[in-house]
Amino acid sequence: MAFRLDIFHALVVQSVRESLRQPVILLVTTVAILLAALMPFMTAFQFGEENRLVMDGILALHFLLGAYLAGAVSQLGLGLDLQGRAAGLILCKPVRRAEFFLARFTGVLVVLALFSFCLWTAAVLSQQIGPLEHGEDERAGLIILAAVAAAHGISGMINYRRGSPYAEWSFFLLPIALGMALSFLLIRDLRADVASAGRVLASGVRLLPAFGLVYLGLGVLAAAAHTLAARFSSAPVLAGFMTLLLVLGLSLEPLIHEWRGAVAESLRVMGIAWLMPSWSLFWPADALYAGRSLPLTYLGWAALYSVTWTAFFLSVGTAWFAERELG
């Protein structure tokens, strides 16, 4: 049976829709955007590290809440499908298991992409709030709040009028509202001060690869979560493995660094380095220091690294899922 794009598309759409109707996805995204907007006010500024602390905070939000989303979407999607026997219902139609599994994963990637876009726009807007390199503009914070309120308000209105799912609409409207807020800021600055608009644009372009890098890391995490969800229906087991993967992946770099000192360059160290993905490689905060941007070559290598790990996890997951009995 050949691969059918229309079936795959239908499965992806279904997967995204199902995820977005979960209130927790909207809640996490909204909280992340609001915290990003408040970050310049909540960081204890010191020693001229203001910009860096704000950006570190927003990137940490992106990574940690994104990791939570990756786990939650996988468990709420594939995990619940397997428990609730909806997977069996789909797979008794002419749908291959690998198609179903990969379509579900693509759905997770779409949700994470929307989440990342929201955080990127919020970060660019948040950069305009002082005391930052481009001067103070607290109104940028208000613009973020207004965009969030507008997305929620409009979806509330749609829900009131047509009874359409509130969470789904809000999630779709959030990136649109934030994108419009960013455009508004640019147009306003263009009319007042072209240089200022240029700086906002440059800031957005500078941050884009950084958020892309975190997204690549989240993709690997999502693949791992998805694979684990195919094997372990139990939520505590899934959460346990994910925590282990996250903690060990975060401590991999310093551990290797330390062992290198002890045992010099050895095969053992290299072996450990390839044992699991290192999340430190997806941490771009240091590269953004002092107005610099992430080198695109690094992003390219990171993408290759991410794709390799993602492919590895998905291969294991597809094999597990093919073997799994659907009662």
Binding site: S234, A235, P236, V237, A239, G240, T243, L244
Partner: peptide, 10 residues
């Protein structure tokens, strides 16, 4: 539900 086992192992 293996919560205890997972937590204990960790």
């Amino acid at each position: 539900s293996r919560w205890v086992v997972v937590t204990a192992i960790f």
